[in-house]
């Protein structure tokens, strides 16, 4: 279960329902989290992706959720624990948090990863990347407008230096 206090849900007619604020969690994160639970519960999404997505969960009947192997094995089927919707909803919320972190890590490293792959593969597959490089050169990549060729420390240091510079100018 999640320990996050902002997680609230309601249960009605064997359906568990909760809302997700899409200002915090992207629709893509909701899809990815849902994907991991499709073999455990039925999920339907509704609502407005600009504001709130509603997640509706329904327990899978023991018949539907049992694998072919478990169905053939009577004992395994008898021992199967009933699906705890509340527990799964909690796990779903935790998975949303994981997805959120994945997206943030991915976004903040997107440019540097792209740069690394293109640089690494330049030597690996000359023909393909020569063409790519030609395209990039046409875009005047050497100016490095994104700052992707610099380490974060260089960027940081420069930022501080320029701030100092501005301040001293002001002082004059």
């Amino acid at each position: 279960m999640t320990d996050n206090k902002s997680f609230r849900f309601k249960i009605k007619d064997n359906l568990l329902e909760f809302k997700i604020n899409t200002k915090i969690y992207s629709l893509s994160a909701v899809y990815q989290a849902a994907y991991l639970f499709l073999d455990k519960v039925y999920i339907l999404l509704d609502g407005d992706p600009q504001k709130e997505v509603v997640v509706i969960m329904k327990e899978k009947s023991s018949f539907a959720s049992a694998s072919a192997k478990a169905m053939a094995d009577k004992k395994a089927s008898e021992d199967k624990e009933p699906v705890d919707l509340e527990k799964i909803a909690g796990e779903f919320y935790n998975e949303l948090l994981n997805q959120l972190l994945r997206e943030k890590v991915s976004q903040t490293n997107a440019k540097i990863r792209e740069y690394i792959v293109s640089q690494a593969l330049y030597n690996a597959v000359p023909n393909e990347v020569d063409e790519l490089l030609k395209e990039v050169e046409e875009e005047d990549w050497q100016e490095d407008p994104l700052g992707i060729a610099k380490t974060w420390e260089e960027q940081n240091l420069e930022g501080k230096k320029s701030k100092k510079g501005k301040m001293s100018k002001k002082g004059k």
Binding site: D3, N4, S6, I24, N94, L97, N98, L100, L101
Partner: peptide
Amino acid sequence: MLDLKTIE
């Protein structure tokens, strides 16, 4: 368990 504050 991860929480929103940490991720932010």
